[in-house]
């Protein structure tokens, strides 16, 4: 028999413990800066490109990359569409200006509209995904022109929820922030000096007017990060999460999002028919002789 008072106190202590925790921003900054420098240089390059949206994720990566490679070796690409919020562009300009990185602006309106001219009935999600892939295709072209690696800017929360476009914003050569939850991105961004306005603004993929992540997802990053912390990092099972006071519908919804988006976190499946197959049993590290 559990004493209800003692149980409630334990739950309160655990959840309070989560809220009180803090990342070692100084250590993380050093690790991630060194990671970018090391991975870029060991493939024989000096430079990196990234899409700068005006949001906190790409701002943080821009800051880390500028520190790792020197600002002139980093190119931030601004890729607005005609419906993009002008505030996104002006925040992106702030990132470029404050980090001192190079910048290129490519308006994607013409290419998106040319394509959807043939599919005028396409819903917003299709259009949003297409924009994300156009942008990534531009980043890879820019990387060839600039002799650079493409830096990913997807955070751990988005990656777990599948809140990103496969082969679009989820693509990259290396991703320095893919193991940081959104709330940790905020903390690190603030610590490295990303302007408070960008850290504190409402997160949005800005794929259509008025879109915000939290409205589209139906929960806040603070809520989902706390759940993911116990579910993923601490390995709490479904019933144990309910014991912690998480609402059953919310837990189930997140479990489904994580499960259903697993394909987005993996390389394409290769049908194994030989004795030694790529991804199955040809298991060489990517940093082979690097």
């Amino acid at each position: 028999m559990k004493a209800p008072g003692a149980h409630a106190a334990m739950v309160a202590r655990l959840r309070e413990g989560y809220r009180q925790r803090a990342i070692d921003t100084q250590l993380l900054r050093r690790v991630l800066v060194a990671f970018i420098r090391d991975e870029v240089q060991k493939v024989g390059l000096q430079r990196a490109v990234l899409g700068v949206s005006g949001g906190v994720d790409s701002a943080l990566v821009a800051w880390l990359a500028a520190e790792a490679l020197e600002p002139h070796n980093v190119r931030g690409v601004l890729m607005p569409y005609r419906t993009s919020d002008p505030q996104s562009s002006s925040d992106a300009e702030v990132v470029i200006q404050k980090t001192g990185i190079e910048s290129v602006r490519v308006d994607i309106t013409a290419q998106i509209d040319a394509y959807f001219g043939s599919f005028p009935e396409a819903p917003a999600v299709r259009r949003g995904n297409k924009m994300a892939r156009e942008r990534m295709s531009i980043l890879y072209d820019q990387s060839a022109e600039f002799s650079a690696l493409v830096l990913g800017t997807s955070n751990k929360t988005e990656l777990f929820l599948g809140y990103g476009t496969i082969h679009g914003d989820l693509a990259s050569a290396i991703n320095p922030i893919g193991d940081l939850y959104k709330t940790q991105v905020w903390a690190l961004a603030e610590a490295v000096g990303v302007p408070r306005r960008i850290v504190e603004k409402n997160p949005t993929a800005d794929l259509w007017a008025g879109q915000t992540d939290e409205a589209e997802l139906g929960f806040s990053y603070a809520q989902v990060d706390e759940l993911l912390h116990f579910m993923i990092e601490r390995r709490y099972r479904h019933d144990e999460l309910l014991d912690l006071g998480f609402e059953a519908g919310f837990v189930t919804r997140i479990e489904e999002l994580v499960t259903h988006s697993q394909y987005k976190r993996r390389m394409p499946l290769i049908a194994k028919v030989s004795g030694r197959s790529i991804t199955h049993d040809f298991l060489y590290p990517r940093d082979w002789k690097r």
Partner: peptide, 12 residues
Amino acid sequence: PLRGADVGEEHS
């Protein structure tokens, strides 16, 4: 390899 970068109770 580094695993965990929290300060306080949930240390690395």
